[in-house]
Write a protein that binds this DNA or RNA. Sequence first.
DNA 1: AAAAGCGTTCTCATACCGTGAACGGAAGTG
DNA 2: CACTTCCGTTCACGGTATGAGAACGCTTTT
Lengths: 252, 252
Amino acid sequence: MSDTGRGVKTTETSFRIVEAIRDEPGLGISALGREVGLSKGAVSKHVHTLTDLGYLVREGDGYYLSNRFLSLGIQARERFPIEHVRPVVSDLAETTGHVANFIAREDDRGIYALRIRPDGSEDGDIAEGDVAPLHATAGGKAILAHLPADEKRALLADSSLPAYTEKTLTDRADLERELRSVRDRRVAFDREEYRKGHQCVASPIIGSEGTAIGAISVTGSDYHMSGKRLEEDAVGLVTSAAKSVENALLSR
Amino acid sequence: MSDTGRGVKTTETSFRIVEAIRDEPGLGISALGREVGLSKGAVSKHVHTLTDLGYLVREGDGYYLSNRFLSLGIQARERFPIEHVRPVVSDLAETTGHVANFIAREDDRGIYALRIRPDGSEDGDIAEGDVAPLHATAGGKAILAHLPADEKRALLADSSLPAYTEKTLTDRADLERELRSVRDRRVAFDREEYRKGHQCVASPIIGSEGTAIGAISVTGSDYHMSGKRLEEDAVGLVTSAAKSVENALLSR
DNA sequence: AAAAGCGTTCTCATACCGTGAACGGAAGTG
DNA sequence: CACTTCCGTTCACGGTATGAGAACGCTTTT
């Protein structure tokens, strides 16, 4: 990996272990060793350290992430005045009947920072804290379309555009064309470009400097309604929700 | 330094840096070095590693926690069927008009895993992910009172009882006496024992094995209502909320 | 201009991480 | 009940990656 001597390998290892536990809670020392390719002795050291620090919890013969991680995630989210965003996203979820998201921009990616499901709906395969690829999600495209030209170019430069489904836009020119339209209309769509059977509608949140700092989106699934109907119903609500957040942010 | 060789020092250092950023977002390399007592070169390595891993974000000349941490915190919370707990705690907050919490037990401490404020209230000095000392909070005492005798003894054994205010119970005998009453009534109180001007009422959530796995609590502040009134109003609501969660957990 | 701050990069000594083996215990198998 | 297997802990040791410190270029302050 990054062996330029600029990194701290031990920390990488610890986080590999943490992420292995996140992805499969309840793993034990040996299983973790197999998972990350380390000896039992080494894993034992890491796990003990992380437990002493309070970030892992042992229960029976397995390890779990501690709720202590919430103190980091919640604080991260506070960088945004998230309490102004929450009621808007919540309303959006209830009135549309679909999952509503706030996606925060962080460098070359978006993160689902808030994800609210309407009462009674199932939770899908996306969770708060997950990464939203900028080129393959409605929220990401809403953000991309509202970046300064040089920044956008930097983001699309070295990163080839990975395909998540067969509908993902992988051609730069196609993407650029769509982004122009997104920029004009302030709305972006995702038609099964990231997950099969899932459509999204998103609108950007533009900061005081004129660049996107996030997006509001709504996710609909095939099972409940066609993509067309989702777009018709949600476009207006999503854009006004984003606008409303935008105003709340500016007047602080 | 007497190192037992059971730890991983580098990981500790990385988390010291992460926590420094949590407590003071926007710190730079030099400031972090001063904060944790490391050379600039060393801090630079750690911070680059954490940024590459996606857990820190650089903005301007400061570093911030990434929302990526949410993927860890949220997953940690999912160990509980938290979506069954949320509506109950939410209702509790609205009907009482006070902050309502779900506190998860983790080994020798409680963690505020869910904290919901009624509409329009300020957020205080406690956040999700924070530690709730077992002997000094209502939720903690509710948990302590419903542990097997040997476990309780182990928890109260080596840990002296630190005083957070002058009302904190620091005498073991006093605490034991109160815990007996808590066990009988299924309600615990905190009368400014953790934070000045804050009272709490809590009721335990008892798992299938008869031991407490968490607690539901309500926090009131002096400014809005006296401790007496809080207790009168909230006792019934808190206990029935806890019971309701308990039933939801058992019938899964 | 000069000084002081910042973050990066370099070199180097040594502390510490990771391997592998040995150990005791728990659980499964005959 | 012996036998096996798997687990987590611990130990000693060799190699290496970590952290101190200084030098550098840069920006900002004086």
